[in-house]
Design a protein around this nucleic acid. Structure first.
Lengths: 214, 214
DNA sequence: AAGTGTTTCAAACATACGTTTAAAACGAAC
DNA sequence: GTTCGTTTTAAACGTATGTTTGAAACACTT
């Protein structure tokens, strides 16, 4: 193993272990053992466990948000003044995500699980980090989303977008257990691309559901 | 405080702290301090931290699953041979959940957050515990769900039900942060009952979305 | 009021954690 | 081949955790 590989091995091991067990339940000793490096290497290369967690997110979200930003700019210059189509917007997001996790088929699932953890688990520093680093692209996407659903009230749109977010994060993050269940119950497994293919019509239909008074 | 209150105070404190910070991040000292009881009380009353976690779930899920079982039996004897209606099934579930958390308005959100943690966080013992204790009612409900959506393929139904589950757990578990966001962004907050009111049409519409080939 | 089983308590236990240290090993430049 | 900055290593540090202990306090029956 060459010298620069240490940091990368740590990131690989951390990414996998965090997604399996959560942040607090994964010790630096777990990580360094799995990575085959010395315990002190984490603090040497990343400073602290918190910064390692952020680095794991940055390695995925950096390329992802960069790629998404490009796609969105391309969309806006391609159709100047035109309103984007909802299904298209969803497709762009899923394609970008699939592209960012293309190294291995499990990668996207792993990262979705991390994203879910970031939401549910304490880790206030992580939320602040994500907001600070990637808040802008997120807002851009939301603006387009609003333009694509002009018939929705702001309130309905707000809630339905979060319903979508929940369905996506939850199912993609547990995709491997779910495909195992599907395999067992129905004799039909699915890879993550197929799950996304099933997810999009569900989301599009839910987002466009008729308004219902309380 | 009377003597029997110790166990109850511990459960109350644990429920809240677990939902805020996760299981591993919440120490027994956190819990006993907040509960105003001695540290050793947890091990005396519950045996171990693991068993305390299970007890927190049992306190909510026991009444909930009992009540749901009753409702389902009532539904089947009320309409013998008849197929249940989807919207009705969703309503029953949400009403039962709201009823089980009626002590305080925050209770259901807190518990949903715990449920989300149970899924994402390691805690293998918890999943086994939940499966063993409440697997039967869950399966009954699923059977009715299948009967209510005969036009869906088993595969589509399987996935869409999990999409629903994800949207529900995610949004209800983060309901308080989301209502705060909604209040800030739109000037309109919502309590959890209203969120459920918005959720149900979204779910029903998503579940009945037209099938789309991969 | 004495006796008995239950519950509380302060203190200590062993263990695991994240982090720091100082020396050793390494790699590239001269 | 020596030097110098970088990286790795083994060991230790201080702190926090879950759990156990044995004595004290309590509630109830007789």
């Amino acid at each position: 193993m060459a010298q620069k590989d240490t940091a990368k091995s740590i990131l690989n091991a951390a990414e996998e272990l965090f997604s399996e067990k959560g942040f607090a339940e994964t010790s630096l000793r777990n990580i360094t053992t799995k990575a085959g490096v010395n315990l002190a290497a984490v603090n040497y290369h990343f400073g602290s466990k918190k910064e390692l967690i952020q680095a794991v997110f940055a390695r995925f979200l950096g390329p992802f948000s960069e790629s998404l930003k490009q796609q969105l700019e391309q969309l806006e210059t391609g159709l100047p003044g035109k309103v984007p189509d909802l299904q298209t917007l969803l497709m762009i997001l899923s394609q970008t995500a699939l592209l960012a996790g293309r190294d291995s088929p499990r990668r996207l699932g792993i990262f979705m699980r991390l994203l879910g953890l970031a939401y549910t688990q304490g880790q206030g520093h992580l939320r602040r980090f994500l907001q600070r680093e990637y808040g802008d692209v997120f807002k851009s996407y939301m603006r387009l989303m609003s333009a694509a659903t002009p018939e929705l009230s702001d309130e309905d749109r707000f809630w339905r977008i979060h319903f979508m977010l929940g369905a996506t994060v939850f199912t993609l993050s547990t995709a491997d257990s779910l495909t195992a269940m599907a395999e067992h119950d129905l004799g039909k497994g699915s890879d993550i691309t197929q799950v996304i293919g099933k997810l999009i019509p569900f989301l599009a239909s839910g987002l466009n559901a008729p308004h219902q008074d309380d």
